[in-house]
Structures are given as structure tokens and as C-alpha cells.
């Protein structure tokens, strides 16, 4: 706990001290809030419990996030972000050792993150927050999965049976730590608004140890793990320079 306090204090002091230095921002505006809409492309790999699965594919996940950004040096800024993703994912029947058909899950991710960025100096000589930038960010993501329906043979399990099935499968949650590299370009419109396009490349690390004998919960965990690994995310953001 002391270490975490020390860590937070260090970050606070670094930012504050840098702010006392020369930090022009854009026409003196150092703080801006940005809303981003993006498409997250997840690399959906076979899980450890199903190494025979050869159906690797990409998963498209719409993402929305809001970030608060603070320019703390001439070419540097820090961003705190909070975001949400929701998508559905299909679990192959191969998982279902009990002979059950494939399931479709509704998965939602809620994440918070902190990112550190630097605008390019050599090629595009730009001062934060405009111009090309690159940086990295840490994310803490809470991911939850709820099975919503059968992915196959819709006519086999209808009505009461389906309802009963959903009752058996509870909402499952997992926490992930993400690390992402980010690059993009931001410009300013009318001296007040920001327009951003960005590309993130990240990886989620599972922080949970789960040990459940309930196969349905295990399936959900497995599915969440499979959906939170490598990803590539394209964002378009629009924001406002506040002060």
C-alpha cells in the first residue's frame, strides 16, 4: 500500500513540477476532454484448454471512451481515460464436453487507463497536443460475460429450455491489466476543438485465478480470456480544449 501511495505521489509530483516549467499547450490551453469512438480488432486465439481449435479469427468490437488530457510539457501530455466495449462472442461446441451446442456470449469490458504521450519532434515538429504523437498506456479492464443464446441450431433449444439454460450460466467477471502502445495524429479546429485519430496496439493480462468446478463458469472464464489478449484499435475522437 505504501508503494502504491509512493507511486501516485511520484506521478503527481512529476506532473506538477513539469507544469511549473514551460508547458504551452495549444494557445495556452493545456486541458482538454476528448470523446473517442473506435473499432477494436481482437485477435481471438485458441485457449489453453482447447489447443486443437484451429478457428482463429479476428473479433470486431465497437469501443467508446472519454479521456481527460493534460499537457504537462512542451511535447508531452498525460491522458486518463474511461471506456466501454460491448460485443458478442461465440463459444465453439468443441468446448462443450457434455455434448452441448455452441453458445453465444454478450461480453462487456469496462476499462480505465492512464496514458503518457509525446508529440513527434524530428519529422513532424509539433508541440502537444497537436501533431503526430506516440505513447503508451496502462489499462485496468473489468470484463464480464453473459451467455445470451445458442449459436447454432436455434430451433433445438427454444422457449423454456433456453431460459432454463441461461439461468444456469451466471454473469462472470474477470479483471485484466492491459498495456498498449499508441500512435496518432491530432489537430485543432477553430482554436477550440480537437480532432484525433489514433491506433492502439495492446495486450491484456489476466489478473484472476479462477478455479471453478462449475463447467458453465469455466466456459465463461475461458471465453473472457480468449477475448482479452492482443488487440488493435482504431479511434476517431472529438474533443474540446477547456483551459
Amino acid at each position: 500500500m505504501i508503494n502504491i501511495r509512493f507511486f501516485i505521489l511520484s506521478i503527481f509530483l512529476t506532473i506538477t513540477l513539469n507544469c511549473l516549467g514551460q508547458a504551452p499547450g495549444y494557445l495556452g490551453n493545456r486541458f482538454f476532454v476528448e470523446g473517442d469512438l473506435g473499432l477494436n480488432v481482437g485477435f481471438y486465439f485458441p485457449s489453453t484448454s482447447n489447443t486443437t481449435d484451429e478457428n482463429k479469427y479476428l473479433l470486431l468490437r465497437p469501443t467508446a471512451k472519454i479521456s481527460a488530457n493534460w499537457v504537462y510539457a512542451r511535447r508531452k501530455y498525460v491522458a486518463a481515460e474511461i471506456g466501454y466495449q460491448q460485443f458478442s462472442s461465440t463459444q465453439d461446441s468443441l468446448y462443450n464436453f457434455a455434448g452441448q451446442p455452441s453458445l453465444k456470449y454478450r461480453i462487456s469490458n469496462q476499462f480505465v487507463g492512464i496514458g503518457f504521450y509525446k508529440t513527434s519532434r524530428k519529422k513532424f515538429n509539433a508541440l502537444a497536443p497537436i501533431g503526430f504523437y506516440s505513447g503508451f498506456k496502462f489499462l485496468l479492464s473489468k470484463s464480464s460475460a453473459v451467455p445470451v443464446r445458442y449459436a447454432e441450431s436455434n430451433d433445438r433449444f427454444e422457449g423454456v429450455e433456453k431460459a432454463a439454460y441461461n439461468l444456469n450460466f451466471k454473469k462472470t467477471e474477470m479483471t485484466f491489466l492491459g498495456l498498449a502502445l499508441s500512435t496518432g495524429f491530432r489537430t485543432v479546429l477553430k482554436d477550440k476543438f480537437t480532432l484525433n485519430s489514433a491506433l492502439d496496439f495492446g495486450y491484456y493480462l489476466n489478473l484472476n485465478n479462477f478455479d471453478s468446478r462449475d463447467p458453465s463458469v469455466a466456459f465463461s472464464y475461458e471465453e473472457l480470456k480468449r477475448n482479452n489478449s492482443l488487440y488493435l484499435q482504431f479511434n476517431i475522437g472529438f474533443g474540446v480544449l477547456l483551459f
Partner: peptide, 26 residues
Amino acid sequence: SDLTSNYLNDVFLKSELYDAFSQLSK
């Protein structure tokens, strides 16, 4: 004294000159 690859539109120019005056006045 920067030779750069970006096209100097008014936004970049404002940013650069704001910075120049910032250094000048500080």
C-alpha cells in the same frame, strides 16, 4: 529554426508562434 515535414497550416503556425512568444516572455 525548424525544417519539418508537416505542412504549416494555421493551427501548426499558431502553436509554433505561441511557443515562440512563450519562450520570449518567460
